[in-house]
């Protein structure tokens, strides 16, 4: 997004576009990366509920899809809260760039 100068900004610096933060990709902050293991996923959706960055994608049928790596900051809450299947986690954290 190009920088705007004061002449171009709306009066009172009002932001007219709802949810425009989506243009700012926070995925570059990540040092750890969550990996989704689909066969261990029980579709409990806890990861989706607890994600502070709205970075768990959901299909039209309301099923969990993969992570949205454009925004995921790699905090690891999803991996910690994941109940997994029979003790096997469906989300594991890995070092970024490994």
């Amino acid at each position: 997004m190009s920088k705007k100068f004061w002449e171009e900004l709306p009066q009172g610096s009002v932001v007219l576009e709802a949810g425009s933060s989506a243009k700012f990709k926070t995925g570059s902050w990540r040092s750890m990366r969550p990996r989704w293991i689909e066969e261990n996923c029980i579709q409990c959706m806890f990861c989706w509920m607890y994600c502070p960055d709205m970075s768990v994608k959901v299909t039209e049928e309301g099923k969990r899809a993969d992570f949205d790596f454009e925004y995921c900051k790699g905090c690891g809450i999803c991996a910690l809260e994941c109940p997994g299947k029979k003790g096997n986690k469906a989300i594991v954290m890995e070092g970024e760039g490994n």
């Binding site: 933060s21 989506a22 502070p52 709205m54």
Partner: peptide
């Protein structure tokens, strides 16, 4: 119900700059 809620649209968007793992956006 989580499955129903997940179909809805978030009214708080990603791309905000809270720290990784912050409790407030949740």
């Amino acid at each position: 119900r989580l499955k129903e809620l997940a179909k809805g649209e978030d009214r708080f968007a990603h791309g905000h700059r809270m720290c990784a793992g912050c409790g407030a956006p949740i």
